[in-house]
Computed example of a mutant assay.
Amino acid sequence: MVKMIGAVLILFAGTMIGFQQAARFAMRPRHIRQLIHALQRLETEIGYGYTPLPEAIERTAEHMQGAMRAMFQSVGDTLQSDKECSFRECWEQAAASHWPRTAMKAPERASFIRLGSSLGISDRDDQIKHLRLAVQQLQAEEEAARDDQARYEKMSKSLGVLVAALVVILIV
């Protein structure tokens, strides 16, 4: 009886680990798409609204959800509260504190950080060019993330169940 309960618990745990990994593969393209929308909104605020960067960041945060909202709010809050902190430092601090809550990986983070080092130090047109470049890079990463999702999502679910079944067989 105890072995049976243990086997069921192991199967359940292995299955949940597989499904959790599959969910990360599914969330990555969604998070990249949210970041792309945030940057496009930021581009609109800067380009067409002639909005100053700190205010544009705050307005962008208002229209985001989840980790993206927290990341942009963090940049805006740090810009307003710490006058000695440069935009780049605020951007990097927000990325460091909020990036682990996303399913995005190192290439997306590198594009995000690179963008932060170029915003706030040039004129409006140059900032728009940098935003568009970051969006293009993220769109390429989104395509790769969708490929990974199609390739690995189902495999992760199956692998979780199969590894748990193997452990149960080896124990029993």
Rank of each mutant, 00 (worst) to 15 (best):
K3W: 08
A7C: 12
V8G: 07
V8N: 02
L9W: 05
L11M: 15
F12L: 15
F12S: 14
T15Y: 13
G18N: 03
G18L: 05
F19R: 08
F19P: 01
Q20I: 14
Q21N: 04
Q21W: 06
Q21G: 04
Q21M: 10
A22C: 03
A22K: 01
M27Y: 11
M27A: 15
R30P: 02
I32G: 04
Q34W: 12
Q34Y: 13
I36M: 03
H37F: 14
Q40M: 13
L42V: 08
T44K: 02
E45P: 01
G47S: 12
Y48W: 13
G49F: 06
T51A: 09
P52W: 03
E55F: 07
A56R: 14
E58M: 07
R59K: 15
H63P: 01
G66Y: 05
G66H: 05
D77C: 04
C85F: 06
S86A: 05
F87L: 12
E89N: 10
C90R: 00
W91F: 06
W91C: 06
A95F: 01
S97R: 12
S97C: 05
H98A: 06
P100Q: 12
P100I: 09
R101Q: 12
R101F: 08
T102G: 03
K105V: 02
K105D: 01
A106K: 12
A106I: 09
E108Q: 14
R109G: 04
A110L: 08
F112Q: 06
L115N: 01
G116A: 01
S117L: 00
I121C: 04
I121L: 10
R124E: 05
R124L: 08
D125G: 04
D126V: 08
D126T: 13
K129T: 07
V135I: 15
Q137D: 13
Q139L: 09
Q139T: 10
E142P: 04
E142V: 03
A144Y: 15
A145V: 05
A145W: 09
R146G: 02
A150K: 15
A150T: 08
Y152A: 00
E153G: 08
E153L: 12
K154G: 06
S156C: 13
S158I: 15
V161Q: 07
L162C: 07
V163Q: 01
A164M: 00
L170Y: 03
V172S: 09
